[in-house]
Design a protein around this nucleic acid. Structure first.
Lengths: 239, 239
DNA sequence: CGTATTATTGACTCCATTCAAAGATAGTGG
DNA sequence: CCACTATCTTTGAATGGAGTCAATAATACG
């Protein structure tokens, strides 16, 4: 994985008002009249290429990020400095909450493909409640969602290897569908090794399970691309 | 576990200004001049007895809670309605963030012993940024801490059974110490079954591991009371 | 005091890991 | 464009850590 700095980022000119991400992103549920105000808060828009870091763990909190397009993975580190993949973020999702506790990032974020990123400077967060109340409520909702997602991950990781893997695939499928992409064919972005890391399984177990699903005709694999051939059967595994 | 309603709760008269929980709770890091304002926000103080619920999952979000004294467990529920213990909260910790995403609680909270609880009404959260900026920052810090804690739990649950159990014991020990109690002797509150649920282990495994630590003279057990006899050896298990 | 819950212990099983090795794919430089 | 290399994936066989099943002991509680 390349460790190039963020200085490569290029600035773009786009407004939230006519951004195609629309309801998925921060503006979701915002008063329409507040959207121009949101544009005043979002200061930079940048591009990140595969393998580049959005931020590294240990860095000071500078801004929240909204993914305008693309996908990233979040990596946290344990006391022995082992990497732990915390999850994947897709278009419209907000990144950076790992720094809310003490203004230091506890995770690193790496682009899995070319990403367009919007930034909400940290200092904008103070007083935002008063300036744009609907945006404040919206941010709190995103944060609450992050909390619920983490807890769901804990619960899911108690189930069998196959259940966990299929839950991951279905979760991605739903999230792609919500973004207007096919729920039946998409990229899982992660290597078997990374997926095992995320699901607390070994590379070999992930590989075997995926091949088995492929052999049964439930999914079709070609590297990181997956085609879901029999959604009911796939769902049945998690019932 | 009894399912008595919260109507049994009794109201108390205490002010944040002279509350003994002090720096552990919401006021931590608050401007001293803001503490009287905090008292204006906290409307009720109540008592909860062992087994009573602070709230049930599915209920609407009405307020955040600060534990003035006592201990509670947080329970979440999966799609099959199985209980999953999400954790224990101790004096000074804030409860209710599970409702931030959609104003519905996704967890239930049960008293593990007699608790004194302070309430911060949900409607106070809007505009608090403007009214008491230091309190707003403090709340965000608590929420950020909750996010980090959940992610740490995910990472810890990847380790061996013994590592997980010992991590839990050391975590409790630290938190009791931070509250002025002995880090060497305390209650784990949970049954072996509940602890297994929290750590993703069976009752039998928890029991065996605890007995082994006892036999080795590292800890001494009497039901839910634990005495740590050899802290260095206990720590060494997580190194 | 008797009953229900919780804890302990042992023997056996199994799911996922580990170890090992071969195959496929992507990326690099000549 | 192809050869070379590093990385990633797949597969098989053996192992082991925690689970399961079962039965007894201890404790809490009405």
């Amino acid at each position: 994985m390349s460790q190039q700095s963020c200085s490569i980022l290029r600035e773009l000119k786009v407004s939230c008002k006519n951004c195609s991400v629309g309801v998925l992103c921060v503006p979701r549920g915002l008063d329409p009249e507040d959207i121009p105000k949101l544009d005043s808060v979002i200061q930079h828009r940048k591009i990140l290429h595969r393998g580049e870091f959005l931020y590294h763990h240990g860095e000071n909190f500078g801004q929240l990020f909204a993914l305008k397009s693309g996908a990233v993975k979040i990596i946290s580190y344990d006391e022995f400095n082992n990497e732990h993949i915390q999850g994947i973020y897709l278009t419209g999702e907000l990144i950076g909450f790992d720094a809310l506790a003490d203004n230091k990032h506890h995770c690193s974020v790496v682009a899995l493909e070319t990403c367009h990123v919007c930034e909400i400077p940290a200092e904008m967060l103070d007083g935002i409640d008063h300036a744009i109340p609907s945006l404040h409520r919206q941010l709190i909702r995103h944060i609450g969602h992050k909390i619920n997602t983490s807890e769901t991950h804990i619960v899911t990781n108690k189930a069998s290897a196959e259940f966990r893997l299929v839950s991951f695939l279905l979760n991605l499928s739903h999230r792609f569908a919500a973004r207007g992409f096919s729920p039946y064919e998409f990229s899982i972005y992660l290597t078997r090794q990374e997926l095992g890391n995320y699901l607390n399984l070994t590379t070999e177990t992930v590989s075997r399970l995926m091949r088995n699903l492929d052999r049964k005709g439930i999914i079709e694999l070609q590297q990181k691309r997956i085609k879901i051939l029999d959604m009911p059967k796939l769902r049945a595994i998690t019932d």
